[in-house]
């Protein structure tokens, strides 16, 4: 074992330990904020694994998207729903926990056996890649062109859907009321949606 392989093995072991520890913490801890932060740890360890696999762009994207966007969004959601509520303990909770643990261990055993048993096809001489970005780009504009373009429609639709779900149409006052007590934003009366086409009058747009 030369130096490079040794470094690789040790960093793999460290990353794996980090990831498994953080993942267990996500599942087992009671405080949801700790779980959310530990989830960020899981994502970062995964991006480290990607680096070990020579996938530098994927690793950067993993940090940007999962840690930077998804995890922050989860934290925001937790902090916005800042509601302390003590849940009454479910009777016989250990049965459910035991069942979940049993299923997880069984699944792990099955998948582990599979990974060990399967003769994986490993290409013998992989060419050394200097920049994965160029290869990714080539794939995006050749054999993965159609999924790449379809993803744009998917994103457009998701955007429209998100706007539809999140939109609230408030009644706005005509004149600005200076000096009055401002209403709480969540108690603004929502404008009733009048079906324009039903009433027959072609009212102007929203």
């Amino acid at each position: 074992m030369n130096l490079a392989e040794g470094v690789q093995t040790i960093s793999f072991a460290l990353l794996a330990l980090m990831m498994i520890g953080a993942a267990l913490g996500v599942v087992l801890l009671d405080n949801i904020v700790y779980s959310a932060f530990l989830l960020g740890g899981v994502f970062i360890s995964i991006s480290g694994l990607y680096l070990l696999l020579n996938a530098d762009f994927v690793s950067a994207a993993q940090i940007l998207i999962y840690v930077g966007a998804v995890n922050v969004l989860i934290l925001f959601a937790i902090m916005l729903v800042n509601k302390r509520e003590d849940f009454s303990p479910v009777p016989r909770r250990w049965i459910r926990k035991g069942g979940a643990a049993l299923v997880s261990v069984g699944l792990f055993a099955l998948l582990g056996t599979m990974v060990v048993q399967t003769p994986w096809v490993i290409p013998a001489n992989l060419p050394a890649t200097t920049s994965t970005l160029i290869i990714l780009g080539e794939h995006f504009f050749s054999d993965y062109l159609l999924p790449f373009e379809l993803a744009s429609v998917l994103l457009l639709m998701a955007l429209v859907g998100a706007v539809v779900l999140a939109r609230r149409e408030y009644v706005l006052d005509d004149e600005a009321s200076v000096g009055e007590m401002p209403q709480l934003p969540l108690q603004l009366p929502e404008r009733p949606k009048e079906p324009v086409a039903l009433s027959g009058t072609s009212a102007p747009s929203r």
Binding site: L146, L150, V153, L154, A158, G161, L165
Partner: peptide, 24 residues
Amino acid sequence: ELVMIFISLETLSIASYLMTGYMK
């Protein structure tokens, strides 16, 4: 092709979730 299958499957699924929750 697997990537194409997955992307189109997700286009169908996500649109279905959105339409299911359309009556806000």
